[in-house]
């Protein structure tokens, strides 16, 4: 009788342990599921944020590129250099049999924002009396932007000076490499 009672007690203990183990496992599974679902909802945001960070970094790198920069000044682009580049229609080139985009962008737009004026796209005929330079694109704006100085060389009463104005550099990232 006592052995039977002991046996029953042991079974009860085993059942108790199994329930406890199940409960703890379920609890951790629930916590894990909660964490995964939270991460999954944020994933889209994180992808967008990472893309934005990458594009912002690219904007910064472009303004410091020798093909754009004005006399080595930081965040300053040479408008004369941009006008030369404007003659390039294609933004892609082929290297080792693969199509690549210049500077990894599909379009570059530089808009003068101070002094403020109506948008006049720069062409060979109206430059420098204009305030919008578009490279490899026909659009008027792009998703990633940064403030830059729009600089040119000027001459007044025989004195050469650098004229820098406040501008916004916008880029559209290329899907190509």
């Amino acid at each position: 009788m006592s052995a039977l009672l002991n046996n029953k007690n042991g079974q009860l203990k085993i059942q108790q342990m199994i329930f406890m183990l199940l409960a703890v496992t379920l609890f951790f599974i629930l916590v894990g599921l909660f964490f995964v679902s939270y991460k999954a909802t944020n994933l889209q945001k994180e992808v967008a944020s990472l893309k934005k960070d990458k594009a912002d970094g690219l904007v910064g790198r472009i303004s410091g590129n020798p093909e754009f920069t004005f006399e080595g000044k930081s965040n300053a682009i040479d408008a004369d250099k941009l006008m030369i580049l404007q003659t390039e229609n294609k933004y892609t080139f082929v290297e080792n049999g693969r199509r690549k985009a210049f500077w990894g962008v599909e379009g570059i737009i530089v808009r003068k924002i101070y002094p403020l004026g109506e948008d006049i796209e720069c062409t060979r005929d109206n430059y420098p009396d204009c305030n919008l330079i578009k490279l490899f694109t026909n659009e008027n704006s792009a998703p990633s932007s940064s403030f830059v100085s729009w600089c040119t060389k000027k001459n007044f009463q025989g004195v050469n000076y650098d004229k820098c104005e406040l501008a916004e550099l916008m880029i559209k990232e290329s899907e190509l490499e």
């Binding site: 930081s74 300053a76 101070y114 403030f147 830059v148 007044f156 009463q157 000076y161 650098d162 820098c164």
Partner: peptide, 20 residues
């Protein structure tokens, strides 16, 4: 970077004349 860009913006002030 906006402050940096504003700092290098050329103004209308000439000191001396013709030195913007």
């Amino acid at each position: 970077s906006f402050i940096d860009v504003v700092s290098q913006t050329t103004t209308k002030c000439e000191i001396p004349t013709a030195h913007f």
